[in-house]
Computed example of a mutant assay.
Amino acid sequence: MTTQQFQVRKDQLATTRTVQLPDAPLADGEIRVRIEHFAYTSNNITYAAFGDAMNYWQFFPVAPEGGDTVAWGLVPVWGFGVVEETRCAGVAVGERLYGYWPMASHAVLKPVRLSPEGFFDGAPHRATLHPVYNNYLRCAVDPLHDSATEPLQALLRPLFLTAWLIDDFLADNDFFGANQGGRRGVMLLSSASSKTAYATAAQLAKRPEVEVVGLTSPGNVAFCESLGVYSRVLTYDQLEQLPQDTPCVYVDFAGNGALRKAIHGRFSALAYSCSIGGTHVDQLAGGRDLAGPRPVLFFAPAQAKKRHGDWGTAGFNERMGQAWHAFMALVSQPGAPWVVVEHHKGPSAVQAAHALVLGGRGDARVGHMLSMP
C-alpha cells in the first residue's frame, strides 16, 4: 500500500509535485484514514503563505531531501475521511471523520482524549500546535454534519468559524471606537469575494451600528453586490469615494501591501487594522512605515478560547451552531446559491485547481472540492 501526496515548495508555491510513499505499519494506538475529499480555497493559500510564521507547515511535515535546504510542504486542508485501518481501541474501521488533513490520499493519526464526539491527534510533532486544528469529529454524532451537503461544509465551515469569530472580536472590542460620535463605523473588507470575507460581511451586516464596505477587483463587483451583505462594493482604485475622515476599521483578507498602505494613508480616522489572510500572495508586505495604527494579525483560536471561557463549551457551540445554520440558509438560497461546487479528482486535476486558486483566477462563485486517488 502507498500514500499519494501533493507537495508544494515552501519558497515557491506554484511549484508542485506528486509523490508516492510506501505505507509503514501502524504503531499501537494509531489509525490510517483514507481522505475522501477536501476543500481548496484562498484560505488554504493563506495557510501556505503564512506557513512558517504561523506554523501551518508543522502539522504534516515533509522530511527534507539531501542538500535541499528549502523543504517541500503539505498544505493543510479541511475535509472528510474514513478510517481504513486501526490499532486504536476507541476508533473503528469505517468511521467517518471531519477534520484537518494533508493534501494526500491517506493520513496516519494517533487518537487521544477520545470522546463520543471525536478525538485529538496526539502525534508528538503536533503537541505544541493549537488544539482547534488537532480535533477530529465523528460525523455520526456531529450536529453540524449533513451527508447531503458535505462539500459545502468542507468549503465553508472552517471559513465561517473564522468569520464568526472576527465579527465577535470586533463587536467585543466595540469596533475600536469607529462607531462613536453618532456616526456608523465603516468596516472595510478587502478581497470581498473570498468566502471568509463574505461570511464575515454576512455576520457584520446584522449589526446596525456599522456599515460594511467590500473592496474587490472589477471582475468581482457584480458577484459581491449580488450577495446582499455589503452596504457598498468598491474596486480597489475607488477609495476616494469614501471621505478621508471616515471612521473605519480595515479587515484585511488580501494581504496586499500597496492596498494596505493606500488605506492607512487615506483614512485619518482609521481606528484599527486587522490582518486576516494573504489571498494576494504575489503582493504580500509587512506593516512597517504605515500611517495610523499598526496592523495586528487576527488569530481565530485566541478569540475562540476567550469565548469558551466566557460562555462555556456548550454556550459557544450553541451560538456558533445557530449562526452556522442561518448562514447555510443564505448560501443555499434556491435559484441563487452563493457557491457552486466543482469536483477535481486525481493529481493533475488537483494541480490545476491549486494553480487556479493560487493565481486568484477562479470564478468567485465556484467552490473547489479535491481528492487525490
Rank of each mutant, 00 (worst) to 15 (best):
N55T: 01
A199S: 15
Q180R: 15
L189I: 05
Q322D: 02
E240K: 13
L144N: 13
E209Q: 15
L159D: 01
R87N: 07
T279Q: 10
V296M: 08
V210I: 13
F59Y: 15
L152Y: 14
S217F: 02
R232L: 08
R126Y: 01
K195E: 03
T86W: 09
F316I: 05
S217T: 14
A49V: 13
W311H: 10
S105M: 04
T128R: 15
Y136D: 01
R34Y: 04
N256F: 11
G257E: 14
G81S: 08
V75Y: 03
D289T: 01
G335S: 09
A140Q: 05
P337H: 08
G228R: 11
S348C: 01
A353K: 07
P208N: 00
S268N: 08
T128K: 15
L109T: 07
L330M: 14
R294Y: 12
A254H: 12
K261P: 00
G362M: 08
F80D: 02
S147M: 06
G309L: 02
E95G: 02
T18K: 04
G265C: 05
V210H: 09
A352F: 01
I276H: 07
P247I: 02
L239P: 12
L189A: 00
L284K: 06
T128D: 13
R138Q: 03
A14Y: 06
P243C: 00
T2R: 12
L270V: 12
F175G: 10
T246I: 06
L13Y: 10
D68S: 08
G287L: 06
Q283P: 00
T3N: 14
L152T: 08
A127K: 14
P218N: 01
H308Q: 14
A63P: 09
V341N: 01
P22K: 02
R266E: 08
E240T: 10
G73S: 08
Y136E: 02
A254W: 12
R126D: 03
H145I: 01
V91C: 03
T149R: 12
N256P: 09
Q58F: 00
